[in-house]
Simulated assay, not measured.
Amino acid sequence: MTLIAEDLLLILLDDDTGTLSHSDKIQPLLGGALLVELALAERIEVAEKTSIWSSAKVAVVEHEPLEDTLFDPLLDQALATIAEKPRTAQDLVNRLGKGAKDLLLERLAERGLVRPVEDKVWGLFPRTTWPAADRTYEDSVRALLQGALVQGLTPTPRTSGLVALLTAVGHAHKVVDRGDVPAKVVKARAKEISEGAWAAKAVKDAVAAAQAAVTAAVVASTTGAAVASS
């Protein structure tokens, strides 16, 4: 079984060119995906604020390796990081997402879902792209998104978490075949799913915190880039 972070990468990768949409935002996105995964596994929670001056912190519900059915080294490492000390979701999405992209892409390649292609930009700068090798699994993920966002089907918690992450970067309406459905309708459906009652409150609070943290990180990086170029 793939992680939500891996599903997210597959969705954001162009199948033909192997380049990544929102590459400048991928670190907090993947960190957010790890938080969402742990929230759905009910291994983390958002602790109540201790004062009006403090920010809500993410805490581990029970710090031990995940059960065999859920165990993944990357998730267990994320749990260990969260358990070190109280941190906000905004801190954690960048902290957990650091270095995750390359590791996850290599895992997807090992599973035969993408393949690494080495080339050079302008014949000078080496780069690796990751075009699709087998689209079967990705197509199944897209079908679930299509059902939820366009056909109005009830999504699973896992699909809802993926929608929340895509919504954080304004991309949910771009990953489905809208047909005659206006983009604003799909965006509204994505927002409805993100905010819907599809999980227990503790889980939903943690997913909402991860989504808000990704959005904040994206805004901060965009603002920083704008200032640097002015």
Rank of each mutant, 00 (worst) to 15 (best):
K57E: 12
L153E: 15
L9A: 07
L165V: 03
D102R: 04
E192Q: 10
G123V: 06
W53P: 13
E67G: 03
I193K: 03
I26L: 07
D102I: 00
K204C: 09
K201N: 15
L153W: 15
A228P: 12
D68M: 09
L9P: 01
I193F: 07
E118P: 14
H173S: 11
T136D: 14
E84H: 10
K204G: 11
A208N: 15
G32N: 03
S160C: 10
A188L: 07
L35A: 02
S221A: 08
G196S: 13
V46Y: 02
A5W: 04
A143M: 08
L3V: 09
S21E: 15
S229Q: 12
A143Q: 10
A89F: 02
S21Q: 13
L9R: 02
L30V: 03
R111T: 13
A217D: 07
S21I: 00
A100W: 03
H63G: 05
L12A: 06
L74Q: 13
E118D: 15
L29I: 01
V185F: 13
G123S: 12
E67Q: 00
L96Y: 08
P86F: 01
P182E: 05
A216D: 15
A100M: 08
T223A: 14
W122V: 05
V121L: 12
D72F: 08
P73G: 14
G147L: 04
E62G: 07
Q27S: 11
D14W: 02
T136G: 13
V93T: 04
V121P: 05
V60A: 14
A202G: 13
V176R: 04
T129A: 05
G99C: 04
A199S: 13
A225M: 10
L149H: 03
Q27L: 11
A225D: 14
P155V: 01
L35G: 06
G32K: 02
E110N: 12
A210L: 04
A59M: 08
Y137R: 10
A33K: 05
V117K: 12
L74V: 10
G99V: 02
A209G: 06
L165G: 05
L75W: 04
R158C: 10
H22C: 09
